[in-house]
Amino acid sequence: MTTPTPFGARLEHVVVRYGTRREMVGDSTLVKREATTALDGATLTIRPGVITGLLGRNGAGKSTLVSLLAAFARPTSGTVAVGPEGAQEDPWENAWTTSNVQLVRESGDLMDDEKLSVSLDYYADLRPHWDADLAGRLLDRFEVSTRTKPGALSRGKKSAVGATIGLASRAPLTILDEVYLGMDAPTRYAFYSEVLADYAEHPRTIVLSSHLVEEVERLFEDVVILDRGGVLLAEPVEDLRARGHSLTGPAAAVAELTDGRRVLHEQRLGGTVQVTLEGALTDDERATARAAGVEVGSVPVQDLFVHLTEPRRADR
């Protein structure tokens, strides 16, 4: 079977609100208010053929965003388009896109009271590019029996089943939403390796959402950070790494270099200061720093993520 053309995706000004709630106002009349705004004007592009990391704090809108791509839900307003470059379509009730987009959620979306094999057969029947051999091999590796009922599986094993479905579907757009939960570290590493091996062999678009940023950041080529329902940034992960740097050295020298820059984080240990700054340094600045005995370092993506999504930063 040939590898299908990878799918990309595009969201424009997407708003998603869940439910309404009734509220009493002054003169005791009921007013309908939108209960939750999960996405508030999100615009972004997911490149085809690339592994994209989707990061965000709890409630930032990650799960809502991916549920739109797989047509699990529909935006309140705005447009969603999914498909190979040049042929992207609205995924809602669109059999062409939905059959080519696999979203694996943490809940697993299995028939809990039937043997696992029943659920897997269901996916196998519907997925045009399903690889049964790969599914069998992965389940062996994760030590999951298809005779068990999903309801009886531990969280980690359920995640392993989700990972298996995500990879074996070979969907041109595969979205893994927090599927590592409950897996122990060796299983997670095995999962990452399997994702990379299968991705290298069958190039496709993979979106991976995770809280374990330091563990997964190297898997990504692109990264999307959501913050409070908006897209904070969507760019190659190398660009994100260049968004910050750290300076470590004598307080006075560091203060001089820091002047006029946004300080994301500052840590003081005696006369030595370490600051995390936004933006990159020019070569001249690097030379100045070196001459002043200040060490220039990189900032882990995890730290950048934490600083950029700090709740008190209301200026996005």
């Binding site: 669109n94 696999q102 579907s169």
Partner: peptide, 11 residues
Amino acid sequence: TIHVAAGGTRG
């Protein structure tokens, strides 16, 4: 749920 998750349309 599994139907939609496996890529089937509601129709």
